[in-house]
Amino acid sequence: MTGQQHETTEETGSTAQQGSVLLDEVTKVYDPDGEHVVAVDDVDLRIDAGEFITVLGPSGCGKSTLMNCIAGFLEPTSGHVYVDGDRVEGPSERRGVVFQANRLLPWKTIEENVNLGPKMRGELVEGRASELLAEMGIEGTEDQYPTELSGGMQQRAEIARLLANDPDIMLMDEPFSALDALTKEIMQEMLLEIWEKDNRTVVFITHDVSEAIFLADRVVVMSAAPGEVKADIEVDIPRPRNLDVTTTDRFKELEREVLELIHSEAREAMGGA
């Protein structure tokens, strides 16, 4: 399925589908008190339109920084980010973000939150919020405030808020890391369902190996200090996927491969220090 898309975008060379991302030698250095901290070091990465990639790495490896550069929240110290060939110069509604800590606005009801993007852009469609909430399986929460919902329901509402804006790219920063294991699995399957329906580009940040493999077309493995891309692993497990694939041999094999990579990296880092 995704293979076909690759071909079409590559053949036509452009706008069959929006949402391709190109990172060109992106480096981000933080310099708080004269300390030179390289968060992201010279990352080249190409993400096709409609592709689902996960960025996997230990905490502090710069994966959130990388995502913030794609979102336009941060400007790379050197190098550039391009989306559909245009240089990223700031945030845009074409690149929706799901935050790690739930970032629904607590003073707005769920419906007001979901409608926020379209409302600010003057494209509010009456009833669209309820549709999306039903699609996310949390119908009837329109008039509730975020704090009245469970963590999983809040995350669903936040995804609905993003979908209401119909972005080309979904940037997700460890969106399920605060959820319990069971809720997390349900959310992963739901996310795949959504993605399979309209094939938006997804960049999903995680430190959970099996989550990374289960969701992605490609797993980009990052290492810490400085944050570099260590490996770019194609996940050749057929779609549509459900959680059953996590018990297959191929899944386990990929899991071992990725874990091995991360562990050798960690050993190196410890030995080096």
């Binding site: 700031g90 945030p91 926020l116 852009r121």
Partner: peptide, 15 residues
């Protein structure tokens, strides 16, 4: 104000 609220507004197309 939380930085993420600011980011949320901008990434939803707000001014």
């Amino acid at each position: 104000i939380e930085t993420d609220y600011v980011r949320a507004i901008y990434s939803l197309g707000g001014s």
